[in-house]
């Protein structure tokens, strides 16, 4: 039986044993990553400082009284969020690179897609934290009134963060073993994340202007997230191996 030719995959819970083991593995990976984040504080700390610096620079350089420049704020917020997230996503496999700990994740007794789900969930929580921090900074320094349509804003933020966490986790794992990983991650990430950036920025602009968002836009952002979570789940089986 050829080793390299066997089919792999299977949606979570498709096999009896995997249905029990998979969620346990994803939860263990999530808890471990959160513990490492809380303990070292490097990743979250760097993202928080970076976001603060950029928002302060924007507040100095953008004339807040000019209505034309106010329209730029939603896309700029998403660009701040994207660059800040990049700092954290680039380090999401750092702990695995040290002492060969990636072997633990490769040897899990279930589809490795569950490792992806655990890692992506940990990244999502970190990104939501960054979003909250960026939103507070924008309120203070850029006078952004989120309360205009808070539920819609929260949903746009969540959908954008899910897309970024899914793509970022996948690419971060791919770039982890590469020689120029600091360079490779943004080069791979930016083209793939462009749909999220465009939709999320436009939806934020519409919501802050008090306009209704077309249903198709919500659907497009949700579909993007769903597709990349699925791709990540299935592709992760091969990405973690040498």
């Amino acid at each position: 039986m050829p080793c390299s030719g066997s089919k792999r995959g299977g949606w979570p819970g498709s096999s009896g044993e995997g249905a029990v083991i998979g969620p346990r593995v994803a939860t263990a990976v999530l808890r471990k990553d959160l513990l490492l984040d809380l303990r070292s504080k490097d990743r979250v700390g760097h993202m928080a400082v970076f976001a603060a610096l950029i928002v302060v620079l924007l507040s100095i350089s953008l004339p807040s009284s000019n209505p034309a420049t106010r329209g730029w704020i939603p896309p700029l917020i998403w660009i701040v969020f994207l660059f800040t997230s990049l700092l954290g996503l680039g380090r999401s496999f750092q702990a695995e690179s040290e002492e060969g700990a990636v072997a633990l994740l490769v040897q899990v007794p279930c589809d490795r897609g569950w490792v992806f789900l655990g890692k992506a969930a940990a990244n999502l929580l970190a990104l939501l934290g960054v979003q909250l921090w960026t939103a507070i900074l924008c309120t203070v320094f850029l006078d952004v009134a989120w309360a205009v349509a808070l539920p819609e804003i929260l949903l746009v933020g969540l959908l954008g963060a899910i897309g970024l966490a899914a793509v970022g986790t996948l690419l971060s794992a791919m770039a982890n073993s590469a020689r120029f990983r600091e360079f490779l991650l943004p080069v791979l990430l930016f083209p793939l994340i462009l749909p999220v950036l465009i939709f999320a920025a436009r939806m934020t602009t519409e919501v802050l202007a008090g306009r209704e968002i077309p249903l198709a836009w919500w659907g497009a952002l949700g579909l993007y997230d769903w597709v990349f979570v699925l791709i990540g789940y299935f592709v992760f089986e091969y990405i973690l191996e040498d």
């Binding site: 471990k32 513990l35 490492l36 303990r39 070292s40 702990a95 040290e98 002492e99 060969g100 700990a101 990636v102 072997a103 633990l104």
Partner: peptide
């Protein structure tokens, strides 16, 4: 390598 997390 021992496959361990240094911060744990």
């Amino acid at each position: 390598e021992a496959a361990l997390y240094g911060e744990l």
